[in-house]
Design a binder for these strands. Structure first.
Lengths: 187, 187
DNA sequence: CTGTCCCTACCTGTCAATTGGTAGGGAGCG
DNA sequence: CGCTCCCTACCAATTGACAGGTAGGGACAG
C-alpha cells in the first residue's frame, strides 16, 4: 500500500478530532473511514488514550514542519509573523475545523495524561517559534519575547474559536487585522 | 423548597458543561447531583437539546447581569475594562472551569441549532458591552469599536483556554498583562 | 363538605444504540 | 514455525429517550 493503515488511521483521527475533539473519536467510525475493522485499530494503538496521544503528537510535529517551512521560505522575520495566522486559517478553510490542541485544551478535564502532555507540547513549540521570530524581527526584547509569543498564540487560538462558532472565515481575518491594528501583531 | 428542581438542574448542568462541555452532560449524573431521577429531568426539559439551550441562555443572561454590575459600580469606563477579564478569571478559579460558550464553540459541529443560537448570543452581548465601554473610554472611535471589542473578547477566550490547558491561573494573568503591554487592552 | 377532575412533580422499568475493549482465529510471508 | 495484519464475534457499560404509574394538591360543581 502507498500509505500504511497506521498512517491512514492517524490521518483520519486527526480530521475527526479537529471537528469533534477527543471525545468525538470512536473506533468504529474511524475504522470505516480507513476501510478496516474497529478491532484492527488495536493492533496499532493499544487504547484510545494511546491513539489520542499519537494523533496529538503527530499534529504538533506536522506544525513544526510548517513553521520551519515558513522560516525557510521567508528570510524576513516580519514576513514570517505575517504568515503565522495562515496556519490556523487553514483549519477553518478545511471544513470549519479547528486546531486539534485548542479543542483538546477545552476537553482538558477528560483527557488521559499522555494526551495532555502532547497538547501542551503543541503550545510549547508554537510559543518557542514565535518567541524566536519576534526577537529576530526586533518586535520585542528577549525578556518579553516569551510573554508576547504566548499572548499572540492565545489570541489567535481565540480568534479561531470565535470564527468557528460562526463558521465565518472573514471573521477570523478581521480579528487578525484587529490584532495588528491594536499592536499585538506587527503591521 | 428554597430552590426549585428546575433551577437546581440548570445550576448543576452549568457546572458540568463548564468542565466537560455539552457532550459531557448526561441525564443520570445530572439527576444524581440534583437528587432526583433521570426521567424527572424530562418533566422540565423535553430533550437534551432543550436543556443545553436553556443552560447556555441562562449563562449569558447571568453574564449580562455581571457586566451591568461592573458598569454600575465603576463609573470610569477604563476601570470597567480593567475589571472585564475578571469575569473569565472566575471560571478558572472555580475548579479550572472555562466559559461555557467557549467550550461549546469548540463543539460547534455537534451542537443542536437551538444551542448554537445561544452560544452566539453570548458572544454578542460581550462584544456589545465591550464596544460601548471602549467608546466611552475613548480607546477607539465608534467605527472601530466593534472590531476591537471582538478582538478583546476572542483574545481573552483564548487566554482562558490556554491557562486551562495548564491549570494555571497565573498564566491567565500574565496573558492579560501582555495584552495590555501590547496595546490590545488599555493600560 | 365531598367527590370528581386535572395538574405538577416526580417515580420505576425498560429500550435501542453506541461505546471502548477483548478473545481468538486465519491468511500470507519469510 | 512465528510474525504481521486484519478479521468475526462478542461483552459490559453508558447513553438519550420513552411508557406508564403514582402521590399530593388545588379547583370546582353539587
Amino acid at each position: 500500500m502507498s500509505t500504511s493503515s497506521k498512517e491512514a488511521i492517524l490521518a483520519a483521527a486527526k480530521r475527526t478530532a479537529m471537528a469533534h475533539g477527543y471525545s468525538g473519536l470512536n473506533f468504529r467510525t474511524l475504522a470505516d473511514e480507513v476501510g478496516i475493522k474497529a478491532a484492527s485499530i488495536y493492533h496499532y494503538f493499544p487504547s484510545k488514550a494511546d491513539l489520542g496521544a499519537a494523533v496529538a503528537k503527530r499534529y504538533w510535529e506536522d506544525i513544526v514542519d510548517d513553521l520551519e517551512a515558513i522560516s525557510a521560505e521567508s528570510p524576513d522575520p516580519i514576513r514570517c509573523l505575517h504568515r503565522y495566522p495562515g496556519i490556523f486559517r487553514t483549519s477553518l478553510e478545511n471544513g470549519n475545523r479547528m486546531c486539534l490542541c485548542s479543542f483538546m485544551a477545552a476537553e482538558y478535564d477528560d483527557l488521559p495524561d499522555a494526551v495532555k502532555t502532547e497538547v501542551q507540547a503543541f503550545a510549547d513549540v508554537n510559543v518557542a517559534w514565535l518567541g524566536r521570530v519576534l526577537i529576530e524581527a526586533g518586535v520585542v526584547g528577549s525578556v518579553e519575547s516569551e510573554n508576547r509569543a504566548r499572548a499572540i498564540f492565545a489570541a489567535i487560538a481565540g480568534a479561531q474559536l470565535m470564527a468557528r462558532s460562526r463558521a465565518d472565515i472573514a471573521l477570523y481575518d478581521g480579528l487578525i487585522d484587529s490584532y495588528r491594528l491594536a499592536g499585538l501583531l506587527p503591521r
